[in-house]
Write a protein that binds this DNA or RNA. Sequence first.
DNA 1: GCCAACGTTGGC
DNA 2: GCCAACGTTGGC
Length: 136
Amino acid sequence: MAGWLVKSEPNTYSFEDLQKDGRTVWDGVRNNAAALHLRAMKLGDEVLFYHSQEGLAVVGVARVSREAFPDPSDPSARFVAVELEPVRALERPVTLAAMKANPALADMAMLRQSRLSVSPVKADEWAAILQMARAG
DNA sequence: GCCAACGTTGGC
DNA sequence: GCCAACGTTGGC
């Protein structure tokens, strides 16, 4: 089972919004590298939910509830969307600063390419982040 | 608000 | 097909 990370500006759509909605269409991705990752997402894959601009932290875990389909917001039909549902909020947010400070995450895709809005998370990186969410 | 990183566009 | 110009994202 693959792990992923998506970014969202909480001003626009926060993890709390996802919990309130129960599920959401993850559309609007207009970047080929990010779209490639969207296409690779499988039903049931878990997704770290990161707040960009404000918060700057992973705040929750979501799950892919529908695999890639044509993005309804894309008139050119070149890009895809998935559907996400909330799993749970992290006990404590894992901040960008903390992730940067953790050598285990040095190779993490989102850190290496900060503008990538959808990125893969390796199993060991996933475990490290969840550990950080538990530890002080 | 600024700037670095990076993707896209368009002239040649 | 190259590359300069431009737009967008996102951290600081």
